[in-house]
């Protein structure tokens, strides 16, 4: 098993654990470095998922967004979750597309839903919502029912169709 505590010291981060989920929390400046090391030194060759959490009004939270990278070492089957925090205004993180090409659509999804930008991404467009959509729907300050985008279409009546 990987010695997460040692890695945490090396990248000025911390660790936490829930059941068998082992987490490494690093500051955003050291994220790319950490992920590079995870891939090349520790053999985490698969990026399973990138996702984000909005901690707005979350009890005890100090940062606005948490961005979560789930890594898998396909050789040993070991999994580690690397987490980092970003803040308003203009939350952004370096893209990990160069490390794992699979990050392409995952980063687009995080951008689409949370508005976190990934400088270095080759094609950072919306992936799920329509291009003309302007909000970031999974942010906690966006209402669940939207701001009327779902009603913003022309009406076709029977007489004219």
């Amino acid at each position: 098993m990987l010695d997460l505590a040692a890695i945490a010291i090396r990248f000025q981060g911390s660790t936490s654990e829930f059941r068998s989920n082992r987490r490494l929390i690093v500051p955003a400046e050291r994220l790319l470095e950490t992920l590079k090391a995870m891939k090349s030194e520790f053999g985490f060759d698969m990026l399973v998922d990138i996702t984000a959490v909005d901690y707005l009004e979350y009890e005890g939270a100090t940062d606005r967004f948490g961005v979560v990278y789930c890594l898998l070492n396909t050789g040993s089957g070991e999994r580690v979750i690397v987490k980092t925090h970003v803040n308003d205004p203009d939350p952004s993180l370096p893209s990990v597309y160069e490390l794992w090409w699979g990050a392409d659509w995952m980063e687009r999804e995080v951008y689409d839903m949370f508005g976190i930008r990934f400088p270095g991404h080759p094609d950072l467009r919306r992936i799920l919502m329509p291009d003309e959509f302007t909000a970031y729907p999974l942010r906690k300050d966006y209402p669940l029912k939207g701001r009327g985008e779902r009603h913003n279409f022309p009406v076709i009546t029977r007489a004219e169709s």
Binding site: M129, P137, Y142, P143, L144, K145, G146, R147, E149, R150, H151, F153, P154, V155, I156, T157, R158, S161
Partner: peptide, 15 residues
């Protein structure tokens, strides 16, 4: 599915 993405009844937009 009363959410931001789902149209609340197609009859609003087609007959």
């Amino acid at each position: 599915f009363d959410t931001y993405a789902v149209v609340q009844g197609v009859d609003r937009f087609i007959p």
